[in-house]
Amino acid sequence: MKLIAILFLCSRLLPSLTQESSQEIDCNHQDVFKAVDTALKKYNSGNKSGNQFVLYRITEVTKIDNPDIFYSFKYEIKEGDCLVQSDKTWQDCDYKDPAQAATGECTVTVAKRGNEKFSVATQTCQITPAEGPVVTAQYDCLGCLHPISTSSPELQPVLRHTIQHFNNKSDHLHLFHLHEIKSAQRQVVAGWNYEINYLIVQTNCSKEKFPSLTPECTSLSNGDIHECTDKAHVDLQLRVASFSQECSLYQGKDFVQPLVKICAGCPRDIPVNSPELEEPLNHSIAKLNAENNAVFYFKIDLVEKATVQVVAGKKYSIVFTARETTCSKQSNEELTESCEIKKPGQILKCNASVYVVPWEKKIYPTVKCQLLGQRHLRSCEYKGRQQEAGAELVPESEVN
């Protein structure tokens, strides 16, 4: 069997913001390569014809403990010279001639279970043929837990079973019924696994007079509240075959219903991807680029929060992150869609206030930004097969 030599030019992504559950790690980590190998084999196995793709470069690796270990990363691929129907893996292939080869980039999350088992949770690949438009391929892990709607009818039989179990086993003198479903997940196995988090509330029906819940049972305003998490397995005959239940008690006097605030002139949240934000954001980034002294233009990378308030017009308050681009102000009259994010590059955390007066066709943006830092990006480049023995990971070297 042909031996493989892998040359990685690596380093870490130094985070501008840290999170308790995630960290950016070196892309030459042994587990990262195993995760990429799993993802690329999964992608190649999904193609019924044509050639396999071969790893070219790994970037932007994040390790997440949640509490299982997940690796989230991007990797670039090039078309190889091995057919997908062959018994070879991508590591046995050479790159196809660049003029005739398709290329692509994949964004993937891979779970690690135990010491060696890796499985793809989600994967989306953007493939550019040798000559042609970008094609998107997506793989979702059908055997993994995925969120489902809390209003899904399929949850009702499970909840009826588990709430009945709670009422039968608890020492409380009153029956409880469903108050709110907070979250739900489903996993397709030989049947279905469900994980449901919900609230149940004490009713006016005592166990002494009511053996089970009836339409007469209503919530007590000062009744006790239990927050429960159930894990249930439903078999192919749609029966609850097994389940576990954990509940925490909130005394009635300690449970406060959230107040519903009605205020016509108060700020209200709007989705960060709302088309309504397009114009305020365009004016915000234009204002930012006009007022700062940076050599390169900045572009909006992520919108974190947005509100709108009806005044004499509309006032938008937006929190966003802006990243330095490759377009210099000296060579470009304005920021365009073709301006790519610069790596490494500066990052700004910005608060924008945009006052829009539609009947005057006027917009007044104000933007205040704080420098978060600079991301020092290195990537890991796969150098392909060699005939010599002793494949190894070479020392780090920065890729500009």
Rank of each mutant, 00 (worst) to 15 (best):
P133D: 14
I200W: 11
G345Y: 08
E154A: 04
R186I: 11
T366W: 00
T38L: 10
Q91N: 02
K117N: 13
I270H: 09
E154Q: 02
Y198C: 02
Q30H: 14
I262A: 14
N351M: 10
V158K: 02
E278S: 13
S22L: 05
Y198I: 01
K78W: 12
E246S: 13
G345S: 09
R323W: 09
S331P: 00
K169H: 10
L159T: 01
G104M: 01
E76C: 01
I196N: 07
K63G: 04
C106W: 08
K209T: 08
S183F: 04
P215V: 10
K112G: 10
C125H: 06
C266K: 15
R57V: 04
Q346Y: 08
D92V: 03
I163M: 09
K329V: 08
L249F: 06
T325G: 06
P67T: 07
T136F: 05
S221E: 14
Q123F: 04
Y382N: 09
T124N: 15
V54G: 06
S379I: 02
D26E: 12
K34E: 07
L3P: 00
Q330R: 14
T122C: 04
R385K: 12
K96V: 00
T122M: 14
E105H: 00
P215W: 09
N51A: 08
K314Q: 15
V36L: 14
K343A: 14
L155F: 04
I64M: 03
E333Y: 06
V357S: 09
E337K: 13
V357R: 13
E278F: 08
N222I: 07
F210P: 02
S49T: 09
Y139F: 15
I163D: 10
T109H: 03
T109S: 06
G313P: 08
L7I: 05
A391N: 12
E227W: 01
I25T: 06
S149T: 08
S284D: 05
K117G: 03
V295S: 15
L159N: 03
R239G: 07
V135D: 13
G114R: 02
W90M: 05
Q257A: 12
G104S: 00
F73V: 05
V240N: 11
I225W: 00
K329M: 04
Q370D: 13
N400H: 08
G143D: 14
T18C: 06
K349M: 10
A101N: 07
L173G: 05
Q346R: 09
E131F: 10
V399R: 04
A294T: 03
T136Y: 14
V354H: 01
G50V: 02
Y71E: 02
E24N: 12
C263M: 08
V108N: 05
A101V: 03
C263T: 07
K231I: 06
D301M: 07
S328F: 02
K41F: 11
F118C: 08
K169N: 09
V61T: 08
A99C: 09
P67K: 12
K112Y: 09
